[in-house]
Simulated scan of single mutants.
Amino acid sequence: MSLAICSLKWEAARTGRQKITYDSDGYHLVRFPYDAAEESYDPWKMHDPARGGTSPSKFPDARSGLIWPSHDGWGTLTALVFWEADGRPTEYRSRFVRDPLSHSTGYDSTATTDIAPTRGGQYRSYTWQMFVHPQTPVGLKISARGAGDVRIAAPLMLAEFKLAIHTDVATP
């Protein structure tokens, strides 16, 4: 079975803090640089700044948070998010979203996770599997919330977002 892989990494120590801005759904679309960062891997050009607009995207605009699947197939999405110790949030949320900017098929969230904080920094990993298609980008969205569901711009230290597409899905 063949795999097409895109692996993105962003870290505050390398590119500076990511400004957390919440969309109308109450989540922030995590952005990833287009350069060849450590551990980033994109030979299929699934994180292409030319996709999804009339002019090239530039990190950290919203389109820099998209992976455009290169093939139809069974996709395994994984993410890693490190939040700095902040003390204000009472919960941390994440979700994978098909078409988070409504460029093609419309916003469709899946695998929403809600976790209470632990002492110190918040280190989370996430996995989800679903069918993916080249015309429908996917994104990783996050949210830190305080009492009364107030969204908090808690600082991120690191984020990774990966898509592995199984291109040879067998059918009976």
Rank of each mutant, 00 (worst) to 15 (best):
S2Q: 10
W128R: 06
L101K: 08
T15G: 00
G120D: 12
G87Q: 10
W74Y: 15
P69S: 13
D25M: 02
T90P: 01
T78S: 15
H103T: 14
W44R: 06
I152P: 01
V30W: 02
K162W: 02
G26H: 03
A147W: 04
D25Q: 10
A13P: 01
I152W: 01
H133R: 15
V81Y: 03
L29H: 06
L3V: 12
S24L: 13
T118I: 11
T112W: 06
A62L: 15
E11T: 14
R63M: 07
A170F: 02
P43I: 10
P134A: 14
S102K: 07
W68L: 09
S55M: 07
F161I: 12
F32G: 04
I20F: 04
A36M: 07
G87Y: 10
E84P: 00
S55L: 11
T110F: 15
E91A: 12
Y41L: 14
V30P: 01
L163F: 01
F82V: 12
R88S: 06
P137A: 14
A170H: 08
D108K: 14
P43C: 12
L80V: 12
P60E: 11
G73S: 10
M130H: 04
K9E: 04
G16N: 06
K141P: 00
R14I: 03
E38C: 02
L8D: 00
D86R: 05
L80M: 09
A13S: 13
Y27G: 01
S2V: 04
T105C: 03
S102C: 08
P43Y: 13
G65L: 10
P56I: 04
D72C: 09
T136S: 11
G73E: 10
P89I: 05
V138M: 02
K19R: 11
T76N: 06
K141T: 05
V169I: 15
W10Y: 15
G73I: 10
P155C: 08
R151L: 15
P89K: 04
D48F: 04
I165C: 00
T127K: 15
P89G: 06
Y123V: 13
P117L: 11
A159D: 01
F131C: 06
S125D: 08
S104E: 08
T136G: 03
G75D: 02
A79Q: 08
W68C: 05
A116P: 00
P49D: 07
Y27N: 03
Q129R: 14
G106M: 11
I165Y: 01
P69Y: 12
I165K: 00
P137Q: 14
D114I: 15
T78F: 03
A154F: 03
L66G: 05
D23W: 02
S94E: 08
D42C: 05
Q129H: 11
D35E: 13
M1S: 12
F32K: 04
M157S: 15
V81G: 03
G65M: 10
E38N: 07
L80I: 11
G52Y: 08
R14H: 02
R63V: 09
K45A: 15
V138R: 00
T110C: 05
K9R: 11
V81A: 03
P137F: 06
T136N: 06
R93P: 00
K58D: 02
P60M: 09
Q129G: 13
L140F: 03
T105I: 09
I5F: 06
T15F: 14
E39I: 02
P134I: 12
M157Q: 14
D108E: 14
M130W: 07
R31S: 14
Y107P: 00
